[in-house]
Every structure is written in C-alpha cells, then in structure tokens.
Design a protein around this nucleic acid. Structure first.
Lengths: 128, 128
DNA sequence: TCGAGATTGTTATCTTATAACATAACAATT
DNA sequence: AATTGTTATGTTATAAGATAACAATCTCGA
C-alpha cells in the first residue's frame, strides 16, 4: 500500500519512457492505478514535481503534459519542440541561448532562476 | 446584452492594462461581470484567445495568466520575465534569440510557428 | 424578406491542480 | 523499547482552469 518516493518516481519515469508522446498527469495516474488502485492525484503530482525538480522529467507548460528528460538532465535551458500535428516532442540543450537571455534580463536587473522555452510547430516528419 | 468581439476585446484589454499584475481568466471574468452580470467563461476565453492571436495580449503558460502586450505587438519571440516574489511581469523582445533557436530546430527539420519563452526569478526590486 | 453562414450567448461538464487534513514511518532521546 | 518530534505519504474534498455542444442572434446577399 505504501511506497517510497524514489520507487514511485522510477515507476512514473518508466511509464513516461514507455510512451513516445507526452503524458498528462491524469494519464499517468490511470496507468499507476492498474497496479495500485488506491493512488490519488496528489501522489502523482508530488511525484512529478520531484522528477521535474531533479531534472529527470520536464513539464510542458503550454500543453500541460510531461516528458522524460532525454538530455542527461544537465541543460541549463531545456528547449522543447512540440509538434502540433503528431504530438511528438523533441528536446534540445538550449544553453547557447543563455547569453542572449541574460542580456535581456540584465536590462531590468532581473535574476533568472528557471527558463522555460517551448516551441510549437511541425516536426520533420509532419512538415515533409 | 450582446456586444461585438472588438468592443469586448477593448474592455478586456483595458482591464488588463488597469492592473499591474498578470490576471487569470477568471479574475477577468469577475471584473467583466461587474458591468455585465451574464458573462460566462467561454466569452472570456474566446476574447482572450482573439487578443493573444492578435498579439495584443500574452498568455503566461507557466502561471496560467494573461498580460497586455507592452511591446507594440511586433516581437517574433516575446520573452516574459516573471517575478516569483511580487508577481510582476516584464516583457522583452526576444527576436535576438531567433538565430540560436532556429539552429536548434534545424537539427531535426522542425518548422517553428510559435515560441514560448518565460523566465522565472526575482525582479530588480525584489532581488535587491 | 428569406435563409445561409457566421458570430455570440448559455449550459453543462470536463480536465487540471491543490488545500487541508489524516496517517504512517523514521530518528533521537531517554 | 516507549515517547515524542519531524518528515513523508495517503486521502478526501474541492478549487481553478478550460471547453464541448448547442441555442440564439445577427449579417448580408439574393
């Protein structure tokens, strides 16, 4: 009935990895409930929030969904390209953007902590 | 009872402009209902979606709120800096980011249509 | 004026997310 | 090992955000 956070995080991450599309919190919840019927939304949200804090998963703010991190969790600026046709998501390391971003925020002495960069469009397959 | 889209858009925009913080759709709804009690959520969402399509307002995806555009609606890449302490939002023209962003998406032949750049941190006042 | 098409209003509901509290585990001290 | 304080996890209920589906109204050309 009770499961430690780390184990649950691994479960959720493998659910995310088993899917080639971003998943919403409630889709993940459904999957978890197959094995553990009592799971409730806060458990999923807490787990997802731990995973995103660790950089092991990313939340796609603009579509309210989650993907596993495919970049070794090291980018300072994850860039997520979302295909509006097929729903696939591609992750890039956007560290190169940092100087330009800093130039902008320095204008107003803003101290940046977290960068969100999402791009909507068509992936290579769908645009072809 | 009935009001054309353009007029309603102006109403919503001046509500947004009268507020120095981002507003959620339901906060805007509340304000509208002062003068027009019958207004329902879909009206607000339709109006906001027209405004954001026109570039006259921006949606802050990461905090589910809206701000009026302060940049003459011309930037190809709006950059929104959100202060996590006071909630204020600063808008910048991120057109300079475009070359780097394009370099990333070109790797996978992704065709970008819309860029979302949001930065969380502390504004000049709060960081001081 | 009539009717097709577009716009706007309304109802109801769905999805997403979290507050608030309850319980269980762990750790430190005795 | 019992007591107590602290943190982690589970549970209930509901808040907040968003939209589908349909109804009413307007516009404008024939």
């Amino acid at each position: 009935m009770r499961k430690y956070a780390a184990a649950r995080q691994d479960d959720v991450l493998s659910i995310l990895n088993a899917c080639d599309r971003p998943m919403t919190a409630y889709q993940i919840l459904e999957r978890l409930q197959v094995g553990e019927p009592g799971i409730a939304p806060p458990t999923v949200y807490r787990t997802l929030s731990a995973l995103t804090d660790q950089g092991r998963a990313h939340r796609l703010e603009s579509i309210k969904a989650f993907v596993p991190c495919r970049c070794n969790h090291v980018e300072s600026v994850p860039v997520l390209a979302i295909c509006e046709d097929c729903g696939s998501v591609d992750e890039h390391d956007g560290s190169d953007l940092l100087p330009s971003l800093t130039a902008l925020t320095d204008q107003s002495a803003f101290r940046a902590q977290r960068h969100i960069v999402e791009i909507h469009g068509q992936c290579g397959n769908c645009a072809a």
